[in-house]
Amino acid sequence: MRHEFRLTVGPVGFRIGSDWREPLDRLAALYDGYPETALPDFTVRLFAQRPWRRFIRPSVMIGGDYMLPDAAPMALAHGLLAAEMGMNLQMALGQRRYLLLHASAAEKGGKAVLMTGASGAGKSTLSALLGERGWRLMGDEFALVDCETGLLHAFPRLVSLKNEAIALFEGQVDARRFGPKLSDTPKGTIRHMRPNDEAVAHMAEPVKPALLLFPRFGHEAAVRPMGAGEVFVRLTQASTNYVALGEAGFDALSSLVKTVPTRAIDYPDTETALRLVEQLWTESSL
């Protein structure tokens, strides 16, 4: 590839190659402070659909060690998003060292709360808000469970703020942590935000998962217990590599379900959700 950028996110090293300089410059600016990696685990490639498309109506194809054969090209203006999607894709399809859960996570006092649920449940926004309010953001998208130890490893890539969530952070955090506002993406308007310095500085520190929440937005505030069987099934659905990991994944997931208290929470607004999280966190620590 013509241009290359390397970085480490949590325990994972990435090499991102690109036909264009611009997306990598934006990545480098946003991932300022993240360590470089000497031995990348995964390679992402952003390349032109045809050679001349580097210059004429440039469109970005996402490739790498693992690829989706029918992925559509993206506008070069969305190159940053393409790089992020490429990194997610490598994790979702290729991660074998950790049980990968589609979940956000935040740490306080050496223990972590995990939040998972359907798209739009608010797990990403809630973890990012916790990260600005005294918690350490461990990741807004993927949580990595070590199959040997059961510990949770952070994966604090850029927070992908979507639509209404963007305004919750603009004006509240240092403007240099924001990427450009990307309009008309498949998920609406997206703005990337670098996790704060604490999240980056401590991203290599795994912690014990202590609370698992299934948030759901758009309902009256409520807290419900969940049966362990249902939790197990929903976590297998939230994992992209559960089947591939075989018995190691089974042991890690069943142990997580057996040992970590779990609640479903409904919330009408983010302030209520944060209050519920803090309340359940205090109760689970007693």
Partner: peptide
């Protein structure tokens, strides 16, 4: 089989 007992159900990993 690897068997794990949860509250009301049993998980079986069939090797």
């Amino acid at each position: 089989r690897r068997i794990v007992q949860l509250d009301s159900v049993t998980l079986i990993f069939h090797r």
